[in-house]
């Protein structure tokens, strides 16, 4: 299969940029447009683009983990953030916040961790679909 030279060159620079951008979207998502779902899609799009220009093994190496592991760990992060309030005797999924805003990240609380879980699940699911479709050929 012939890959476009322009795309394959550009993606080397775009992949890290898109990943950073996806984290940016994830972080601003609490009060502004953005969040785990869209951030996850952007990150998955970066890897999907990469998979257009190189073979699948290389993409898998770049991703480092199995998409299925991403799904599992994302769900685990989400459910643990939701369960945390149970240990304080509060109802399931009650939002707990750390009072001091952290530099760069901003206010941190369980809804943010939940969003990180969503971010991981979305990357995992999207890439699982992309990889399975690519392997079909």
């Amino acid at each position: 299969m012939q890959f476009s030279v322009i795309l394959s060159t550009a993606i080397r620079y775009m992949l890290p940029l898109m990943l950073i951008f996806s984290v940016f979207i994830l972080l601003r998502g609490h009060n502004e447009p953005g969040g785990g779902f869209i951030g996850g899609l952007v990150a998955a799009a970066a890897f999907a683009l990469y998979s257009f220009t190189s073979n699948l093994d290389e993409v898998r190496r770049a991703l480092r983990v199995e998409p299925r592991t991403l799904i599992g760990s994302g769900l685990l992060v989400a459910v643990s953030s939701a369960s945390l309030s149970l240990f304080f005797g509060l109802p399931f999924m009650t939002g707990l916040w750390y009072d001091e805003p952290l530099p760069v990240i901003g206010k941190v609380g369980t809804p943010f961790i939940f969003d990180v879980g969503v971010y991981l699940v979305v990357i995992g699911v999207t890439l699982l679909i992309v990889f399975s479709l690519t392997e079909e050929e």
Binding site: R68, G72, L75, V79, S83, L86
Partner: peptide, 19 residues
């Protein structure tokens, strides 16, 4: 009250991780 939801969910998650 939430454990009938959380238990199968966490079981499912662990099973996905142990695919």
């Amino acid at each position: 009250l939430v454990s009938p939801l959380i238990i199968p969910f966490i079981t499912g998650i662990i099973l996905i991780l142990m695919w």
